[in-house]
Amino acid sequence: MGLGLKTFPTLAAAGEALAASATARYLGGGTLVVRSANEGDVRFDTYVTASEQALTDITVADGRATIGAGVTMARIVREPALGFLAPVAKAVGGAAIRNMATVGGNLFAPVPYGDFAVALLALDANLDIDGQPVAASTFLAGRDTTHARALVRSVSFALPVDGTFKFAKASRIRPKGVSVVTIAAVVEERAGTISSARIAYGCMADRPIRAPAVEMALVGKARTAEGIAAALAVATEGTTPPTDAIASAWYRSEVLPVHLKRLLLSA
């Protein structure tokens, strides 16, 4: 069956079109939506997209970054001011996927995808939805309900202090593969102890999640093997990892503390 494409000059107009038709689907880079159509998904018959400039803008100023939802992973890799995010964007698919995959689409990507969204969660990013800031954590929690038809214009976050952002993705295929587990962290230290920690996981639930027990156990400790031991002991708390073709839930739970330890102790 053929699908129609409707392109609107603004995201608001695209939103109206989506609201008017339950069988319309917003199209970002299309790596998931067009794939669904190719696989015979008949739940939608129209692609809706927008050409608004803000969707492809990147602004880095006054210690904050704002990235349009239509910015691709390849663009992020090329953006010098977002160098710390290059390893995250590079972890998404192969070269062709990165030229197409957008930040907005990654927020909606089902497990085992969503590596960039994991980083956004650790960065405590806000999403611009209808001109309102919505915390990435709130958005992800309501992704299938409150925010299921929400359109994201951009994401923004405070730039992390140099060296505090850490990212790791474990996969079974080299050099690229779908995630077994993805971890992003922003860990700040003062006078030899951890003063704040935000830890986010991918593939440890049906969507990216924060790890509050780990975060609490890290604060006030030294970033050493002994210092992080209590945090590693609660690494899997609150997780409900999936079993899929890549890994079983059991395997994910077993390897998570290993990867978390390596990440936290990395330079």
Partner: peptide, 18 residues
């Protein structure tokens, strides 16, 4: 990747590109 083509200098998957 068997459908990969170059569009405006960038590698794309033609199966997922409208």
């Amino acid at each position: 990747g068997s459908c990969a083509v170059i569009v405006d200098g960038e590698l794309r998957l033609s199966c997922l590109t409208l």
